[in-house]
C-alpha cells in the first residue's frame, strides 16, 4: 500500500470533497424546494397523497445508476444529470416526512389558529410548518446522508466527485484512493448530519422549553 498517495494528492482530495459537498447540497435543496409544496398538496388533497407517496416509493426501487443513465438523453453527461438524479432520490424521503410532519400537527392547534382568525396560508406558514419541522428535519438528515453516499454512483457518468476515486482505484488496481474515498464520504456524512442537528436545534427552540 502506498499511503503517501493521500498526502501527495491532499489538494485534489480537498477540491473533490468540496465538489462532492456542493453536488449533495444542491440536490437536497432542490429536493426540499419540490418536496415541501408536494407534501402540502398531498396533505390538503387526500387523493393526491396516495399518488405522490406511491410514485415516490416506486422511484426508490429503480437502481440509481439506471436513473442516471436514463437521464442522459435529456441532460447529457453533465453535472445537472447527477444533481437531477440525486434530487429524485431525496424526494422519496422528503415528501414522506413532510406529509407525516404536517399530519402530526394536533387538530386542536389548527382549530385554535383558525379561531384566532388565521387564514389557510398563514396557518400553514406560521403554525403547521414550524410544528412539522422536527419530522421534516429528520427527513432532511436521512436524505442528506443518503445523497452524500449516492453521489459516488454518479461516478459512472463522470460526475461522482469522491466516487471518481473508486473508479480510478478499480481501473489502476490500487486500493488507497478507494479507501480514501470511502473514509472521506463517511466523514462528510457525519459532519453534515451534525450540522443539521445543530440547525434543527436552533430552529426549534420551543421543543426544549420546560424540560
Amino acid at each position: 500500500m502506498r499511503w503517501s498517495w493521500i498526502s501527495d494528492h491532499a489538494g485534489e482530495l480537498a477540491m473533490t470533497t468540496l465538489e462532492h459537498s456542493a453536488i449533495a447540497a444542491v440536490a437536497v435543496l432542490c429536493g426540499l424546494v419540490l418536496a415541501l409544496p408536494l407534501g402540502v398538496l398531498a396533505v390538503r388533497f387526500p387523493l393526491l397523497k396516495g399518488a405522490v407517496l406511491g410514485i415516490s416509493g416506486v422511484l426508490f426501487t429503480i437502481p440509481s445508476l439506471a436513473l442516471f443513465i436514463l437521464l442522459l438523453p435529456f441532460t447529457g453527461l453533465s453535472y445537472e444529470t447527477a444533481v437531477l438524479g440525486l434530487t429524485v432520490y431525496t424526494l422519496v424521503v422528503l415528501v414522506r416526512n413532510t406529509v407525516e410532519g404536517l399530519a402530526s400537527v394536533p387538530p386542536n392547534v389548527r382549530e385554535a389558529a383558525r379561531a384566532m382568525g388565521y387564514g389557510g396560508t398563514r396557518t400553514l406558514l406560521t403554525v403547521e410548518l414550524p410544528l412539522a419541522l422536527p419530522v421534516i428535519m429528520a427527513g432532511v438528515r436521512v436524505a442528506t446522508v443518503m445523497t452524500i453516499s449516492l453521489v459516488s454512483v454518479a461516478g459512472f457518468i463522470g460526475h461522482g466527485a469522491l466516487g471518481q476515486l473508486f473508479i480510478d482505484g478499480f481501473q489502476r488496481d490500487f486500493a488507497v484512493p478507494v479507501i480514501a474515498g470511502v473514509v472521506i464520504t463517511l466523514m462528510l456524512a457525519l459532519v453534515a448530519d451534525l450540522l443539521l442537528v445543530v440547525t434543527q436545534h436552533a430552529l426549534t427552540p420551543w421543543t426544549r422549553r420546560g424540560r
Binding site: L162, D173, F174, V178, I179, V182, A189
Partner: peptide, 19 residues
C-alpha cells in the same frame, strides 16, 4: 442505520474486489 446509509456501496464493492 445512519452509518449504513452513509457507506458508499460502490466503494465497498471495489475495495473488496481489489482485496
Amino acid at each position: 442505520a445512519s452509518f449504513g446509509r452513509a457507506l458508499p456501496t460502490v466503494g465497498v464493492v471495489i475495495l473488496v474486489f481489489l482485496v
